[in-house]
Amino acid sequence: MQGKTIYVIARQELTINIRNRWTLIFALVFGVLVVSIAYVGIMAEGFSGVQSFTRTSASLLNLVLYVIPLVGIVMGTVSFTGDKGSMELLFAQPLVRTEVMLGKVLGVFASIALSTIIGFTLAGLVVVLGNGPEGIASYLSFVVLALVLSLAFLNLAVLVATACRRKAKAFGIALFLWFFFVLFYDLMVLGSTLLLKGQTANRALFLSLFGNPVDMVRVATLIILDNVTIFGASGAALLRFLGGGTLSVLALIGGLCLWTILPLVVSHRLLLKQDI
């Protein structure tokens, strides 16, 4: 495997994505929403100033948990179900398939990260100018978690696209996954725990947290922001089982890493065996 080839493909993918109007629309909408949310604090605090980094992060959390996975999964599917002619031409070059996969993932991720970071930076500037840098470390951790979440969903999209091959089918499954993890999963878990009792229900809640990267990011962010009161059942179970915030965050980061790496490993195995 050659790093240079991966870099060349990633750069090309980044260029294509940056010029894509959907990326621009996402960057613009995300930036406007993030800055607006940061400004809403002015009204909430009676025009006494812009809200702090901690409150801004908490306010942005829901937006991030809905939008970032959607962007990751859509852009990943678009990139990996590209036109057959262009894929054939690329894979026929003197390179190995692993390089194409990693290059494309890095390129798409870089474009998502760029759009996201611009939005977060604008909001950060608003907060710093209005309220000073207090709590900026938590805010930066939140940004990193948002980026990891986008990578996890991007890699899920790679897996779906590699397994399905057909664009329409891949899009259908990818959007179903977004719906499942963002909207349906919590309902399913809470519903199923109603059937369980005591310690078993707690254990199920604890384990369920590691089955959904969206929940992991939500709980990890809330722990980092020291906002345990709005945790929900799974987060409370996590703290009870692991006994502390630091260990819980580390466990969640480990879980997120697995969610990021495993889909890519499976996609890679599929890609090596299949026809382009």
Binding site: Q12, I16, D83, K84, G85, S86, E88, L89, A92
Partner: peptide
């Protein structure tokens, strides 16, 4: 190699 249908971004 040149595929049957050539496509570029």
């Amino acid at each position: 190699y040149l595929p049957q249908r050539v496509v570029f971004p």
